[in-house]
Computed example of a mutant assay.
Amino acid sequence: MNTYYVTRIEEPDFGCEGCPEGQEIKDKVFLKQETTKEEMIIYMEDKLLYDRNVDEGTKVIIDEDGRLQKAEEQ
């Protein structure tokens, strides 16, 4: 299974109006593959990143749902 490092997370800017009511907020997450150093970008729900304790510098995998999951340290 491929592992990645989160190099940057960009949160959407809704300006002074704030986030529209009921809208799901997705952050832009920049990843670098651990061995090949290939870079990619995915979008993931802000709340899920927080719930899974994923932040910049975190080692992650992409789960079967296409979402980031913190990699188990061995």
Rank of each mutant, 00 (worst) to 15 (best):
E17N: 08
E17F: 10
E17Y: 10
G18P: 07
G18L: 06
G18Y: 00
G18A: 09
C19D: 08
P20A: 09
P20N: 03
E21M: 08
E21N: 07
E21A: 07
E21V: 09
Q23F: 05
Q23V: 12
E24R: 10
I25L: 06
K26T: 05
K26D: 01
K26W: 00
D27S: 15
K28S: 11
K28L: 12
V29L: 00
V29Y: 01
F30K: 05
F30L: 02
L31V: 08
K32S: 12
Q33V: 02
Q33N: 15
Q33G: 06
Q33H: 15
E34T: 08
E34C: 09
T35G: 03
T35H: 13
T36S: 15
K37W: 07
E38T: 09
E38G: 02
E38A: 11
E39Y: 01
E39V: 02
M40P: 03
M40R: 14
I41W: 06
I41D: 04
I41V: 15
I41L: 08
I42E: 11
I42R: 06
Y43C: 07
Y43A: 09
Y43M: 13
M44K: 08
E45F: 00
E45Q: 14
E45T: 06
E45L: 08
D46P: 01
D46W: 04
D46V: 01
K47Q: 08
K47F: 05
K47W: 06
K47I: 06
L48M: 12
L48N: 03
L48H: 00
L49Q: 00
L49K: 03
Y50K: 13
D51R: 12
R52I: 01
R52E: 04
R52S: 04
N53R: 15
V54G: 01
E56F: 06
E56H: 05
E56M: 12
E56K: 10
G57P: 05
G57N: 09
T58G: 11
T58K: 13
T58N: 14
T58W: 10
K59E: 13
K59H: 13
K59N: 14
V60Q: 04
I61F: 05
I61H: 04
I61K: 14
I62K: 07
I62L: 14
I62Q: 04
I62P: 03
I62R: 11
I62E: 07
I62A: 10
D63Y: 12
D63R: 09
D63M: 15
D65W: 02
D65K: 14
D65H: 13
G66Q: 15
G66Y: 12
L68Y: 03
L68E: 02
Q69Y: 00
Q69A: 09
Q69F: 00
Q69H: 06
K70M: 11
K70F: 05
K70R: 13
A71D: 02
E72R: 12
E72P: 02
E72Q: 12
E73L: 14
Q74K: 10
